[in-house]
């Protein structure tokens, strides 16, 4: 598979290209020692570059076109996924998907934003930017989960809720607010994982939870770095500065005590090895869920409330 390299990965790309070259020339000649040497060097360089990328570089990884999305993880982590459609009032929002599935044999409800990969699919998914009907579908599924004691697993990956005319007409604000309101006391365990982009209220609307994880190179912020830069710096070009100032990367957010854990990604990012990433998420979800399910419901809701109240105290 051809790899897509990001700007800051250029030194790795150059080494990779050199190795390819040697392989071509190497037919007949024995260059395996040299190739091996360069491969080791590539690994070390990748390790170094990915050890602590800049905030803006992290944002690029989080938005990488090859990065596994919600549907990829659903396929790799769960069995028997049955997708449910529609908010029962207006439409089916393809930017926000959800349905019942089995995690390690046990039934759960899964919800997440889906960005889509190829151009046509991205358009169909509205680039992962849900409309109010998406959040209302999510709400319907959350309440269904509560009714049948299904734990709720959510995957966050959105640039934000869609800023469109129709979205405003159908009250995007209320759709998001209602989910925050209901999730705060939903009588079932909730685990949220930010897998890519956690864009503002549009992300939070499915991420009020008993436990919140972030993948190592995912981001989570109150506004996109571009949006923040154009407002505060009066220029979207200052997005790298804005990304740094907001500290939108997982290790910083963990440091602030706003999430539970950072899940380490495979070398070079989740897209280099989706199977390994998915296996870690799966294991983490199974273990955490067992823990949350052993807590009596009133206690769980009390802990969730305390958690929410602790933000900024």
């Amino acid at each position: 598979m051809t790899q897509h390299f990001l700007e800051f990965e250029r030194p790795i790309a150059e080494l990779q290209a050199k190795i390819e070259e040697l392989r071509m020339v190497g037919v007949g000649n024995d260059l395996s020692d040299e190739i091996q040497r360069l491969e080791t060097k590539t690994r070390e360089l990748t390790k170094k570059i990915f050890d602590s990328p800049k905030a803006w570089d992290t944002a690029q990884i989080a938005r990488h076109s090859d990065r596994p999305h919600t549907l990829d993880y659903i396929q790799l982590i769960f069995d028997e996924f049955d997708e449910m459609h529609g908010d029962r009032h207006y439409a089916d929002d393809k930017a926000l998907i959800g349905g019942t599935a089995r995690l390690d044999g046990k039934p759960v409800m899964v919800i997440g934003q889906e960005k889509g990969r190829k151009t046509k699919e991205k358009v169909m998914r509205n680039f992962g930017m849900p409309n109010p009907e998406g959040y209302r579908k999510a709400l319907r599924l959350m309440e269904l989960a509560e009714k049948f004691n299904l734990p709720l697993i959510t995957f966050v990956d959105t640039p934000g809720a869609y800023p469109g005319i129709g979205a405003e007409e159908r009250n995007q604000s209320e759709a998001i607010a209602r989910n925050l309101f209901v999730m705060s006391q939903l009588r079932t365990p909730i685990i949220s994982t930010v897998i890519g982009e956690g864009g503002s209220g549009g992300a939070l609307a499915i991420a009020v939870a008993d436990c919140v994880y972030m993948l190592q190179y995912s981001i989570y912020s109150v506004i996109s770095p571009e949006g923040c830069a154009s407002i505060l710096w009066k220029s979207a070009d200052k997005a790298p500065e804005a990304a740094e100032a907001m500290g939108l990367y997982a290790s910083r957010i963990k440091q602030l005590g706003l999430i539970d854990e950072v899940l380490p990604e495979p070398l070079g990012g989740a897209h280099r090895d989706p199977q390994t990433m998915a296996a870690l998420i799966k294991q983490t979800l199974i273990e955490k869920l067992a823990g949350l399910q052993s807590i009596p419901m009133p206690k769980l809701l009390e802990l969730r409330y305390k958690r929410l109240m602790s933000y900024g105290r």
């Binding site: 939070l204 505060l232 957010i253 933000y311 900024g312």
Partner: peptide, 16 residues
């Protein structure tokens, strides 16, 4: 914006 994610989470806090 100057309080970054902490301010976003106030949405969940007030709604709760």
């Amino acid at each position: 914006m100057q309080e970054a994610l902490l301010s976003l989470f106030q949405m969940a806090k007030t709604s709760a």
